[in-house]
Simulated assay, not measured.
Amino acid sequence: MNVELAKNLDEASSEPLKLSVLDLVPVLEQADSAYALNQAAALAQIAERLGYTRYWIAEHHDMPGLACTAPEVLLAHIGAKTQHIRIGSGAVLLPHYKPLKVAEAFHMLASLYPGRIDLGVGRAPGGAAEVSLALSGNFLENVWKMPELLKGVSELLQGNYEYEGRQITARPVPPIPPELWLLGTNQKSAAYAAELGAGYVFGQFMSDVAGEEVLRAYREAFVPSKLSAVPRAIVAVGVVCAETEQEAARLAAAMASFQQEASGEERSAVHERKLLIGTPAGVRSKLEQLSRLYNVDEFIIVTMIPDYSARLRSFELLAAACWSE
């Protein structure tokens, strides 16, 4: 380890962790989509009160257990229900859309809620193959266009986009543009973010690889831009936090069953690296270890406990453990 990195790790470990929320907007048993959306707003309000930095929502399509198909619509509602927490997408699935439409939607949000909007983009389909075809045609062809799509979004946010020789502006033009983040699980997505000069979120909770090399590659290849002068990284991690280890383990087992039913995720995906399970002090210690390992000071927390009250309690316990001193 070089001296500069060691210095950065020491400094990071002395600062309080920044925590954010990634909400998949689950539709739990005995609930309907309307109730799930109300619970999303409640979670955003509680996250703001507790001191979380961001509240992001994910995009999925035709999954019975998940309610958010249009992040920009729900974000408009969440913005009206909150005051200062940053709100954004984790992620808009860019291969389904044209850059102009995405930029216009998030410019609208940034005009309504200045200085609070994050545009997180990803390249997953967010649903079954047939659903992707119904939504946007040949998804694989669209994924191959990802560098072009990302470039378009980046240029639109910076006000220098041209199409067939004509300058095009994504209106309304907000006083403060959205922050652009790319979400991914491997070095390819990290390379895209670095080339654009955008922020990068490593999705540890859904990745089969450790993040050290991915984040290192992002930082080493980063090109400063109008979007960001320096590399900025967040790690997305699954968390189940409860008063006792036994209760945390019980909730984690229930969470694994729900995820398998809601999105087809295999139970084997739930393990120590993808999911931090334990008491508040134990989870805090694991996050601090990851902070030193990855040289990051912000984590975006995914908690898919299939009980709305227990899910809120997990976020409350974690906040108290991290910021009570």
Rank of each mutant, 00 (worst) to 15 (best):
A319Y: 02
A12K: 10
A194N: 07
E179F: 00
T53Y: 00
G90A: 15
E155V: 01
A319G: 07
A210R: 13
L94Q: 13
R219H: 05
V214Y: 00
A34D: 14
V214W: 00
R219A: 05
A321W: 01
L182C: 01
M1R: 05
A233I: 04
A47K: 09
Q30S: 13
L135V: 12
H77E: 09
S111E: 11
D32L: 08
F202P: 00
S136Y: 01
S20V: 02
A191W: 02
Y294P: 07
V27M: 04
L50V: 06
E4Y: 04
D23S: 11
L75C: 09
V92G: 03
A40G: 12
A105S: 13
A254H: 08
P231D: 08
L275I: 10
L43R: 06
V21T: 07
Y55F: 15
F106M: 05
L215P: 04
A217K: 10
E247G: 03
W56D: 07
N160M: 00
Q259C: 12
I117Y: 09
L215N: 04
S33K: 14
A91I: 09
D10Y: 06
G126V: 13
F106C: 04
Y218G: 03
S263P: 00
Q83R: 15
L94R: 13
Y200V: 00
L5V: 06
D118S: 06
S33W: 02
P224L: 06
A269C: 06
S33H: 10
E265I: 12
R219Y: 02
Q260V: 02
M255W: 01
L180F: 04
R216M: 05
A41N: 12
L17E: 01
Q204D: 06
L37V: 15
K286I: 03
R216S: 10
G126C: 11
L183H: 00
L251C: 02
S132T: 11
A41G: 15
G137S: 03
R232V: 10
M63R: 14
A233R: 01
D10W: 07
A110M: 09
A103L: 04
S268A: 14
E162Q: 12
L287P: 00
H60V: 08
A34P: 00
G152C: 12
P306G: 03
V240A: 08
E29A: 14
N295M: 12
I300F: 09
K151R: 13
P306N: 07
A134D: 11
L135F: 07
D118I: 15
I57M: 06
R219C: 04
P280N: 12
A34F: 08
A256P: 03
V73P: 01
N38C: 13
L28V: 09
V27P: 03
A281Q: 15
V153W: 12
S324N: 15
V92C: 08
A198W: 05
G159A: 08
L5W: 03
H84N: 12
H84W: 11
L312I: 12
F258D: 03
M206V: 15
A321I: 08
L75W: 01
S263K: 04
L43A: 07
L74M: 15
N138R: 12
S268M: 05
E72L: 03
A321G: 07
S13D: 14
K226C: 09
E11F: 14
S14L: 13
E164I: 11
E261K: 15
L149H: 11
L287W: 04
L293H: 10
T279G: 08
G90W: 01
Y308G: 02
G115N: 10
V27D: 01
E11A: 15
L19F: 05
D62M: 14
I85E: 03
S136C: 10
S228W: 05
L119S: 11
